[in-house]
Design a protein around this nucleic acid. Structure first.
Lengths: 204, 204
DNA sequence: AACAGAACCGACTGGTTGGTATGTATTGTC
DNA sequence: GACAATACATACCAACCAGTCGGTTCTGTT
């Protein structure tokens, strides 16, 4: 077997992800990706049969990492407490921690970059993105529902909506944080979502 | 004077806005804009000296409308109540109303489409976008501060952060709403921000 | 050492891109 | 109704685009 191809493939995916987040899919040429990696057309089209197929592979990789990350967070929260409300608050706290202590440029989300370029992609890519957000809704929604089942709230709320509210805050915070170039903003805003939960559940 | 040019110019800007929101700036060709309007290269480059200048004009127009819209909302809220907290809640309610009763495809924000394509634009465009978000922070932040000065809160909060939280929710809700194709989501999420305010200020 | 096959190179292609040059149509002014 | 100026159309160009293809290099197998 020849030299290690996964390294090259990863380099292409990494460069593409960075460029797509900064210039968008339509604004990034294959040549730009090659210039960043130092590779050539031959390498690119050996690994991906088209630019579009790269986009698909990229977002699929991102979706897997996102799921693993979420699952790890949930597991960790479940290990740290038996109480569903506490688990929820811990989970939010973990994301606040992870996205708050970022040095350098504000972080972003590949799914979000899709939202305003959806017309460039096909149904398969769309399903990966919407499936990822739906997954957040399901996983978090279950936790919220468990908390709702056990504790009273100051206002009547729907579990799915509360679950969505976290992804909404994260995605929205990315946008404001990026345009204002204020990396701290993301953690701060997640903090406010945590405030909302605590106020809702009368823990404060 | 020749025929009315503003109509043509507006048609170009409208088509560009719609396409940019759907495919991004880099993914939209000048020809695509012309195909949608039924115009030609001659018309385009008569009104805009480059594609980039169109983007600048478009986001500038959007920023002006956004400011006017915000100012109108604030005025209306101030007319409906003398109390700063009530004004704030009314203002949020107005946006919940405006963005919640949308039929057809979920709405979006041109500023947000910029966030993940920033590398394609220059400092001038960047200043318009960041200036717009800063303006929201200032205007809303002042209202929040006025409410904080008069009423106690269950948790200590910063006025600017609360102001940002609304734009964060709106922008984030756009993204999730668009990818899941659920137009109602935006209004619902703004509702949760209103809940947060009401819980914070002990009105519920 | 010979072979096979994957990994990669780089010149090339046809179509598309943003932009230009030049021409024509429209409309108010005198 | 001649003139001027704006508004728009059309043909065209060089640069760039995604993608192709024949060739070269590397590496495990025998």
């Amino acid at each position: 077997m020849p030299r290690d191809a996964t390294e090259t493939r990863t380099a292409l995916l990494d460069a593409a992800q960075s460029l797509f987040m900064d210039q968008g899919y339509g604004g990034t040429s294959v040549d730009a990706i090659l210039a960043r990696t130092g590779l050539t057309k031959g390498a690119f089209f050996h690994h991906f049969e088209s630019k579009h197929e790269l986009a698909r592979a990229l977002i699929a990789r991102y979706a897997v990492l996102d799921r693993e990350n979420l699952a790890a967070g949930v597991e960790r929260a479940e290990r740290l407490s038996r109480d569903p409300l506490q688990q929820l608050l811990i989970l939010v706290g973990l994301y606040e921690e992870a996205l708050g202590n970022v040095t350098g440029p504000p972080p972003g989300c590949l799914f979000a970059s899709y939202a305003y370029q959806a017309g460039l992609f096909d149904a398969e890519v769309h399903d990966i993105v919407s499936g990822s957000f739906s997954h957040w809704r399901e996983v978090l929604g279950a936790k919220v529902q468990a908390a709702l089942d056990r504790y009273p709230t100051r206002l009547p709320v729907d579990a799915g909506e509360i679950a969505d509210a976290l992804t909404v805050v994260i995605e929205g915070a990315f946008i404001i944080s990026r345009t204002l170039n204020e990396p701290e903003l993301v953690g701060m805003q997640i903090r406010h979502f945590r405030n909302y939960l605590e106020l809702l559940f009368e823990t404060v």
